[in-house]
Computed example of a mutant assay.
Amino acid sequence: MFTVPIIDMTPYVDPQSTPEQRAQVARALDEAAATVGFMQIVGHGVPTSAVDKLTDAVDEFFALPLDVKKRYISSRGENRGYSPPKSESLSMSLGVANANQMNDYFEAFTVGAGRSSYPAHPELPASSYPENFWPDDAAPAFQAGVQEWFCHARGVSRNLLRGFTDALQLAPGYFDNMVDYSIDIMNLNNYALPEGEVILTGELTGMGAHTDFGILTVLWADQVPGLQILDPDGMWQDVQPADGALIVNLGDAMARWTNDRWLSTIHRVDPPIADGRIIRRRSAAFFFDGNYDAVIETLPGCARTDRPGYHPITVADNINAKLAGLKAGIAPTAAAREALRLTSAKSAT
């Protein structure tokens, strides 16, 4: 029976934990990463008050009229600000088009770590580290709630990386110089069909099938249907967060680093329907991507004679190729392994 394991991260949060306790968690992380590519984590240390502030912020912004939200579309095409419904196609980040390409109906607001987040590195390229702009005039409480959650999600991701380092039997701090000015990005997502509308046009999708681009993703989501992941047999499986849990999945950078010992699992969001009705779904996906110039190449202990390693690529080049598919419908040239998994998937029955 397919399950997404629930893992208690307390030993990586509590400074009084023992090496044996952390080793037990590391083994569970390794098992989940190698077999599912997804996990649910509890004991992550994020207070419920931060969730409340996040949801208040999300509700405040997405309740605005569409013409007001569109004022916050990036004028320079940067991966920041508002994205209206049907302006992206996640499946094209793998080079697999929908029948109607830009047909993902979610709307989003994107924030991230800009150059000002890393004052010790003034040379960072603005293309990878654009500054945020905030809808303070239209949604005055939005920035504070989002920034607080962003900081918590960043802390969770770094604790997870410590656990991953142990799970891969690498030296403590192995990844430190690859993430000290990480491209950290967060998408706030709202599934925007009016509640109760069930007429779906063509190949309309909530969020198209895709893999994430970076090291790992920390996801908060409503406990409603929608998220599905592709299991090893090519079947779509429903996943909902457990009480108090955050959903974590690995991205392409970690799959490449481990030469697919660990999985960057394809996932999607189907239109969330319960009892024949569209219901609202909200999520906040924090993408821990690594330094723009970090090179993704096979880690020690992950080389295999029967599976050639991926061609080395920088974090920024990997992200930019996927974003070109997502935003502009330009298929990446180095996503063949991921695309094959998607195109061979069976329909859920």
Rank of each mutant, 00 (worst) to 15 (best):
Phe288Cys: 10
Ala253Arg: 07
Ile247Glu: 07
Gly276Lys: 05
Val295Glu: 15
Arg268Thr: 09
Ala253Phe: 03
Phe286Asp: 08
Ala255Gly: 13
Pro300Glu: 05
Gly290Asn: 05
Tyr292His: 15
Thr305Phe: 07
Asp270Ser: 14
Asp293Thr: 12
Arg280Met: 01
Phe286Glu: 07
Leu299Arg: 06
Ile279His: 01
Ala294Phe: 14
Ala274Val: 11
Asn291Gly: 13
Asp275Ile: 00
Asp275Met: 03
Leu263Pro: 04
Asn249Phe: 10
Pro272Arg: 08
Ser264Lys: 03
Gly251His: 11
Cys302Leu: 08
Trp262Lys: 00
Ala285Pro: 07
Ala285Tyr: 02
Arg280Ala: 13
Arg277Glu: 14
Phe287Cys: 03
Thr298Gly: 05
Asp289Phe: 02
Ser283Thr: 11
Val295Met: 13
Ala245Thr: 05
Arg281Tyr: 03
Ile266Val: 15
Leu250Lys: 11
Gly244Phe: 06
Leu246His: 01
Asp289Gly: 14
Ser283Asn: 09
Asp306Glu: 13
Pro271His: 00
Ala255Phe: 11
Ile266Glu: 02
Ala274Lys: 12
Pro271Asn: 12
Arg281Val: 04
Thr265Ser: 15
Pro272Ile: 06
Val248Gln: 04
Asp270Gln: 14
Ile278Ala: 09
Val295Leu: 15
Arg256Leu: 13
Phe286Gln: 08
Asn291Ser: 15
Leu263Ile: 11
Asp270Phe: 05
Thr258Pro: 00
Thr258Tyr: 02
Ala285Met: 10
Ala284Tyr: 08
Ala255Cys: 08
Tyr292Phe: 14
Asn259Ile: 10
Asp270Leu: 15
Ile296Trp: 03
Ala255Ile: 08
Phe288His: 15
Asp260Trp: 01
Gly301Thr: 12
Tyr292Asp: 13
Ile266Asp: 02
Arg282Trp: 01
Ala285Glu: 07
Asp306Tyr: 12
Phe288Ile: 09
Arg280Cys: 06
Val269His: 12
Arg281Trp: 01
Met254Leu: 15
Met254Trp: 11
Arg307Ile: 11
Asp270Arg: 13
Val269Phe: 12
Ala274Tyr: 01
Glu297Lys: 15
Pro272Asn: 05
His267Gly: 11
Thr258Gln: 03
Pro300Phe: 02
Trp262Asn: 01
Asn249Ile: 11
Arg280Leu: 04
Gly290Glu: 03
Asp289His: 07
Ala284His: 04
Ile278Tyr: 05
Ala285Gln: 08
Asn291Trp: 11
Asp293Glu: 14
